[in-house]
Amino acid sequence: MARFLGRRLLVAIPVLFGVVVLVFLILRLIPGDPAQIVLMGTNASPERVAQVRHQMGLDQSWFSQFVIYVGGLLRGDLGYSYISHGTVAAQIGSRLPSTIDLAAAALAVALIVGVPTGIIGGFWPGSIGDKLATGFSVLGLAVPYFWLAQLLILLFAVDLRWLPALGVGGPTALILPALSLGLGFAAIITRILRSALIDVYQQPYIIVARSKGLSNWHVLTRHALRNATSSVTTIIGLQIGNLLAGAVATEVIFGRPGIGNYLVSQIQLKDIPSIQGIVLFIALCYIVINILVDVSHGMLDPRVRKAWAS
């Protein structure tokens, strides 16, 4: 385990370094003076522009700027927003709980809907339940989540008036955003789990287990499902990044004060330091989540654990 984690961290370090370099270059490669872009709309004097350039370190060489930038990141400093007048880390921290709530609720919807549907399709291939599961997976992948969000608002908030359409204020305000973001993820889980179960049920050890007289439930829960969920775990980790990306549009549509909504507002305001900090934070989350997924994959699949020891 320790050797495996060490290898994964060694792989993650250059990836994270590459992301840091790209984020650093965002501010330096955009057309115009970054200080003037940051102060756009404030009628700033030349002295104020020069002061911001000095505060941002733009009057130094690129190498010196990069060293200072990396040094700040190592201290947890993601930059300072001259529009919000606060640190980017504090702005992200104040909005992170809302995004976590949305991502967790969407993941719960995906698991609650996708896992049973995938089991039905994989356990009874060719049945009516399998056809319904396949149809759901195709429809869920074909419908964009932002379009589904608007349909849910029209049906449940405007026509039926059962649920609120905007803002926060309790579990009911989370239902529509979680459904719009989680159902597409559920369709992916359904397709992956169905295919994995169909493949597992053709393996020799399943045939042996059935020949011993084990019940279908025992074979499913103790043998088939455990081996099939390893691929589902991997896909969940890969889709977490999509959940974060989907949260951007979902939070804007439903007016939730999360990181995604904050990112869009800062893009409109051309707040480059905030955009840099948010992009870097999301990339770091994606890298950490993928490492955790690799570890959980090995815990579920003995073959991966055996590869770790080699």
Rank of each mutant, 00 (worst) to 15 (best):
W162Q: 01
G129V: 08
G277T: 00
S98P: 02
L176A: 08
V288A: 11
L155K: 05
H85K: 14
A165F: 05
G121A: 15
A307F: 08
N242E: 11
W162R: 01
S98K: 10
H223V: 03
K212I: 01
T221R: 15
I30G: 11
A108Q: 10
A44E: 08
A103E: 00
T134G: 08
V264F: 11
I253Q: 10
W217Q: 09
S211T: 14
Q55N: 14
P14K: 06
Y262W: 10
F66A: 05
I278A: 04
L111I: 15
L74K: 04
I207S: 11
I235S: 12
P144M: 02
I68V: 12
I267P: 01
F156H: 09
W62C: 00
Y286M: 13
S98V: 14
A186Q: 06
A247K: 10
S94T: 10
G260K: 02
F4A: 13
L181C: 12
A90P: 00
Q150S: 06
V200P: 02
F63N: 06
G86N: 13
L58K: 02
I83Q: 15
G140Y: 10
G118L: 06
Y82T: 12
L10E: 07
L292N: 05
I189W: 01
I278R: 10
I189D: 00
P116C: 12
R226V: 09
L183Y: 12
R28C: 01
V15N: 12
I83F: 12
P116R: 07
A12G: 06
G32K: 08
S274Y: 00
M40G: 07
H54I: 00
A149I: 07
